[in-house]
């Protein structure tokens, strides 16, 4: 299978650099580009798109004063948030409290290193790509525990504990469901998972439907999306933040730049969740007519839209019900799915 060259190689090739220097320069420039693509998307999502979407669901108008469609709100919001005073409460555990807001967004960004975004935009394509993506995304939990522990606030502590409980309960179904895809694809390498999905499943009236795993195994897709919602902490699994119950959960004490970083981290996390779902189930950057990267963007934004939709329409579960669904429902279903998939694949092969 001929794989496309990864982004750092392309860059070093364009710059005419070779060897270690080429690897380093290409890697850094590539990482810079990918990170900024994601940060720009988050900038659109956080201060602007989220408000617009929520307003549409609530029959409101929402931001429209500054710039066309209120888009320049992004700039003013950034200035506003960055110029606020950073309030450091008494008794916080300083190194951890300062470090946590960096851990959360960076872990999510790290996950994008292995995501194929189309048009050759992929930083690295290791054999264990999928495992890397999950591992990197899970580092965020560490950051959340740090915020909760270091903030010296009981609401933060409860929020962090909830986040950990949620992560453990839903990470397993998430990974197990992803494993059923790996059985189909026969590889953990992201580019291969995407490539497998490009083959045609069936042809109806001249329209070829590719073997996207969402079509092959819609049940696994549904499981994955639900577990993913819990993983990114969105309604109905909005447990770690739960604004009406525990104020703002683990981020209660954060303000100014630190708040921005945590907020960014959450949104990048949603996009990462969308990106993994798109790669595993929706053929990654594949799609007709438009270039791959555009399709990739559409897919991750669709997931973002879905989280916002759920936020407007679905109530939050209670923490014990949430864990019950995770351990007694999702875990069982995901294993059932894995076993069934394994049998089917075994029989066909």
């Amino acid at each position: 299978m001929s794989l496309q060259a990864v982004l750092p190689d392309t860059i070093s090739g364009l710059l005419g650099l070779e060897g270690v220097l080429g690897d380093v320069v290409g890697g850094l420039v590539g990482a810079f580009l990918v990170a900024n693509i994601m940060l720009i998307m988050t900038a659109f999502a956080g201060p602007w798109a989220k408000r617009k979407i929520t307003a549409a669901f609530g029959d409101r108008i929402a931001v429209n004063r500054i710039g066309p469609f209120g888009l320049l709100t992004i700039v003013t919001d950034a200035v506003r948030l960055l110029s606020k005073e950073l309030i450091v409460p008494e008794g916080v555990d300083r190194p951890a409290w300062d470090l946590a807001p960096m851990v959360i967004p960076f872990s999510a960004l790290l996950g994008f290193a292995v995501i194929p975004m189309g048009n050759g935009i992929q930083l690295a394509d290791p054999e264990t790509g999928l495992a890397f993506a999950f591992a990197a995304a899970s580092i965020a939990s560490l950051g959340i525990v740090m915020t909760g522990y270091a903030s010296n606030n009981k609401f933060s502590l409860i929020g962090a504990l909830r986040a950990v409980a949620a992560n453990i309960a839903y990470e397993i179904p998430l990974v197990i469901t992803a494993a059923s895809v790996v059985i189909f694809a026969g590889s953990l390498r992201m580019s291969e998972i995407v490539a497998v999905q490009a083959e045609p499943l069936l042809s109806v009236a001249g329209v070829t439907i590719p073997t996207w795993f969402a079509f092959v195994n819609p049940f696994a897709f549904a499981l994955f999306v639900i577990a993913n919602l819990a993983e990114v902490g969105r309604n109905p699994f909005d447990i770690p933040e739960a604004p009406t119950e525990i104020v703002a959960g683990y981020q209660t004490e954060y303000s100014s730049v630190y708040f921005v970083l945590i907020y960014l981290g959450e949104f990048i996390h949603i996009f990462l969740g969308g990106a993994i779902a798109a790669t595993l189930f929706l053929g990654g950057p594949a799609g007709p007519v438009l270039p791959g990267f555009v399709w990739f963007t559409i897919k991750i934004w669709a997931f973002f839209l879905f989280t916002q939709w759920a936020r407007s329409a679905v109530p939050r579960l209670r923490v014990d019900q949430f864990l019950e669904i995770g351990w007694k429902g999702m875990l069982v279903l995901s294993f059932a799915n894995l076993v069934l998939t394994a049998i089917i694949v075994g029989v066909i092969a």
């Binding site: 929520t54 669901f57 609530g58 029959d59 409101r60 309604n235 909005d238 739960a242 604004p243 009406t244 119950e245 936020r311 407007s312 329409a313 679905v314 109530p315 939050r316």
Partner: peptide
């Protein structure tokens, strides 16, 4: 119960 100023509140 829903947790945010969601649609129902606005309706």
């Amino acid at each position: 119960v829903y947790g945010d100023f969601t649609a129902i509140f606005m309706y």
